[in-house]
Amino acid sequence: MQEDKKALYFKNVYDNISSKGYHVTAVLEEKNVTPFAYSTGIFENFNIPELFISGLGPNLSGQIIENYVEKYKSDKIQLNKKIDDLIDTFPIYLIKVKNDDLLEYVLTSVKFYKNKKFEYLQLIFPDLNGKFPNDLSYNYDQNIIGEFQF
């Protein structure tokens, strides 16, 4: 039965990549697990890095990934700079992440790309008071995998 579920899941992944160019995987919050979401297929289909988001729910993460694809498939990505126009509610930063640092998170992408090259960026967002992880008194459960220094 487990193999049937896996096959159905990956059929859904490949169908989404085929129809819209990418798939979003979301892992929900559990005790001692920060929720996260990530894309698969963006690098292959739009030639921009995949996106990893830690600490936001699946609906918002999905919307952000959709906005990211629409904006950057034809625009230069600004790394390590505050971006105010990706979503309405708060500014973000995009930082580079080494694939090896994400391997335990992005299993769908690892399976999809196999031995092909792919890249990831991580989206960094502020806490509820507008503070980023490098600000004093930042307070939010966001796993930062890449290097965030501004």
Rank of each mutant, 00 (worst) to 15 (best):
L102W: 04
N99Q: 07
L60S: 06
I144C: 06
F132Q: 03
N67V: 01
N129Y: 07
Q63H: 14
D4P: 04
Y93G: 00
V27Q: 08
N32D: 12
N80H: 09
N12C: 12
N129P: 08
N67W: 11
L102C: 02
I124Y: 06
Y14H: 12
Y72L: 05
Y72I: 05
G130C: 06
F125Q: 04
K5L: 13
L128N: 15
N115C: 07
I92G: 00
G146C: 11
I87L: 13
G55K: 05
Y113M: 08
F43R: 00
K6A: 14
Q122R: 07
L94V: 05
N143G: 01
K20Q: 15
K71Y: 03
K81E: 05
T25F: 00
F90N: 11
L94F: 02
Y140K: 14
L128R: 15
A37Q: 04
V33P: 02
N67Y: 13
Q2S: 14
Q142P: 04
N139W: 02
N139I: 07
I144A: 07
A37L: 06
T108F: 09
I48G: 00
M1D: 09
L103I: 15
K111W: 13
P58G: 11
V24Y: 09
T108D: 13
K5G: 02
K117S: 13
E44F: 09
G41D: 09
D88L: 07
K111Q: 12
F148G: 10
N16G: 10
L121T: 05
P133S: 04
I95R: 00
Q78L: 14
Y138N: 08
E147W: 09
Q142N: 03
K116W: 04
L60K: 06
I87T: 11
P58V: 11
D84T: 03
L79Y: 14
T34K: 03
Y38R: 01
F148A: 10
Y93E: 05
S74V: 07
